[in-house]
Nucleic acid binder design. Structure first.
Lengths: 349, 349
DNA sequence: AAGACGTAAACAATCGCTTGTCTCGCACAC
DNA sequence: GTGTGCGAGACAAGCGATTGTTTACGTCTT
């Protein structure tokens, strides 16, 4: 049996309104009545119906978090930070993943509007303008990562990859590296392109224009074919910059199978510092992105913005830094080349 | 501006009831009217208010998924399977993680009841009886994994670890291994204890009673201290069975730092087959747990159970199987022992 | 002692949607 | 021509909370 506020009211001998006021502390109620009501609540094991509440108040304790892919560990900590921040303030989180599918993104956004979410953090970069305005037009606040500039109901968090990337480049330069390669994330991904640009610019600046520059998917077998390209170069680069740790791990795997030693033959640098970067063999040198902080900042940005009268968005910046581990070492002296790329092309079983 | 059903009704020149019926296809409405309504919906960009709907129907399109920890990749695919199954049927998923905290578990469950969830999949094993009945008493269906037996409103999915474990034991036995060690998950975790039991029983059966048998946390630095224990044994075991892939990866990391070669010196076997098991160096031999299927099955179990008149739960079983990779090899012939355990105790930086 | 005032709680409208029931109008049958 | 049946929609009563307004009852003032 599930009881309603009226049941509680009857049992306590008061009106439903009083029960509501006791529970929400929204009006002064005498100690005695209050106690009686609370007892009744306890005895009936009463739970208020959130939907009725939301309907009556027109407010929905709900925030949305849109990500691309749940299986990507990049998002795990973002989720964690966001949820933690939201729960601390008594809000619920609806987690929605788009699986990189625009149609799905659409329906996910629709769901958010229907659910009357207060705000939404969009942590995926594959979202279009129309979809965004669907949200803002319904009065839902939005915060993006590396995307769009702030305006009414829209905030932005920018991750400053440049700093970490510069550190990384200095690090490898100091180790004597001169020939670099870059394996960036998908060309359709805005953030991946940002990172790519920052890498290319930084390397060029140090007179280390990278070759080759390739792309790969964030998902499966990340980097295997990119590695093939790299190993087919006459004189193989001494260091490879990867657009994400996931890519880097795929790359290390493929390199090792091709008989390339890390870091003796080739150094590898990742981006993100996912927890597995630490457990990788060798532990991955990577550019740390404060992902949990990203989640927390995203929530705070929404919360703050929605409290403003004009609900004007703001811009936040998060810094990155280099985490040096064992996947980078002194540049090799000898020349390294593979006559054939067969061994690299061999697929992992 | 956000419109209501009445606005749509006015614009289409019909009553709100008709709009509702057109939108839900719950009553035959003439083609012409239907079209007019749909047009009005489009013109106003109308979104129905889910809370009002839920209040009116008393049904909530919401399912809950309770996990321990979002950062654990074990859960990622479970989530994915569950969400996919739910969305296919038009249901929403509220993801709740307990962070292994009983208090949090309590409040999470309360939230679920308040939100009037239809069903809840509890994929964490740290939950008590009282909390469970909170759910069932409110008419919320529950499905557990490796926990509780089916009854009204309660279903169970059992993962049959034994089969995969037997395969694994046979595999290492065939490779000549005789001395094994076991590093199980936390003693407070029911599933971890199941696995431990199955391992001990299986090994004993093959006359390979493991030594030592230790425990460790699922979380941080998994296995580092356990490795210390193992390396302090006079004649180090030739194979280590780990209670999860996460532990196995921590263990491999620690072993390698202690100068132990895998699999030449020691073989390692994990459980779960998380995606990183594949990228580990060496790729991890592990017992595959069908996690995405677990998620899907959990949802289906709920869905099915709730459609039953008596809403009686059922029991499902999922099988495991061995995935052989490179972390297991022929047992070493020579004796291996560390005089001091310093190198093993050295913490990773 | 009568009015003013403050406090504590009840009343009742409302949120937006669903759904059982009723009405209206028309076609068909006898 | 009246009765019957039926299709298409309107009406209105909820769902369970919140909240502005009102009421009842003391107490304080003068």
């Amino acid at each position: 049996m599930v009881y309603t506020m009226k049941d509680v009211a009857n049992r306590a001998g008061v009106s439903a309104a009083t029960v509501s006021r006791v529970l929400n502390k929204t009006h002064f109620i005498s100690e005695a009545t209050s106690k009686r009501v609370l007892e009744a609540v306890g005895e009936l094991n009463y739970y208020k119906n959130i939907h009725a509440r939301r309907l009556a108040t027109g407010q929905s304790d709900l925030f949305g978090l849109v990500i691309s892919e749940i299986a990507n560990p990049y998002f795990s900590e973002v989720i964690r930070g966001f949820q933690a921040a939201a729960w601390d303030r008594g809000f619920d989180v609806l987690l929605l993943n788009t699986e990189y599918d625009p149609a799905r993104t659409q329906s996910v956004i629709r769901k958010l509007v229907e659910s009357d979410a207060r705000g939404v953090a969009v942590m995926t970069s594959s979202i279009d303008d129309a979809t965004t305005s669907t949200l803002t037009e319904s009065g839902v606040g939005v915060v993006f990562c590396n995307f769009y500039s702030p305006r009414k109901l829209v905030s932005n968090i920018t991750i400053n990859y440049r700093r970490g990337i510069l550190e990384a480049i200095q690090h490898v330069a100091a180790l004597g590296h001169r020939r670099a390669a870059v394996i960036a994330g998908p060309e359709t991904n805005g953030t991946a392109m940002n990172i790519r640009q920052a890498l290319l610019a930084g390397l060029k600046h140090k007179n280390m224009a990278p070759f080759p520059v390739t792309h790969c998917d964030y998902r499966v077998d990340a980097g295997a074919s990119a590695v093939r390209d790299i190993l087919s170069v006459t004189d193989i680069p001494t260091v490879i910059f990867c657009g994400s740790d996931l890519i880097a791990m795929g790359v290390m795997s493929a390199l090792e199978e091709a008989g390339v030693k890390i870091p003796e033959d080739v150094s590898v640098v990742g981006i993100d510092d996912i927890s597995f970067a630490f457990l990788a063999r060798p532990p991955l040198t990577t550019i740390r992105v404060p992902r949990e902080l990203l989640g927390v900042t995203a929530f705070n940005a929404l919360d703050k913005m929605l409290k403003l009268k004009r609900r004007l968005g703001a811009k936040y910046t998060l810094e990155t830094e280099l985490a040096v581990r064992a996947s980078t070492g002194p540049a090799r002296k000898r020349r390294l080349a593979f006559r054939s790329t067969k061994s690299a092309a061999r697929s992992r079983s």
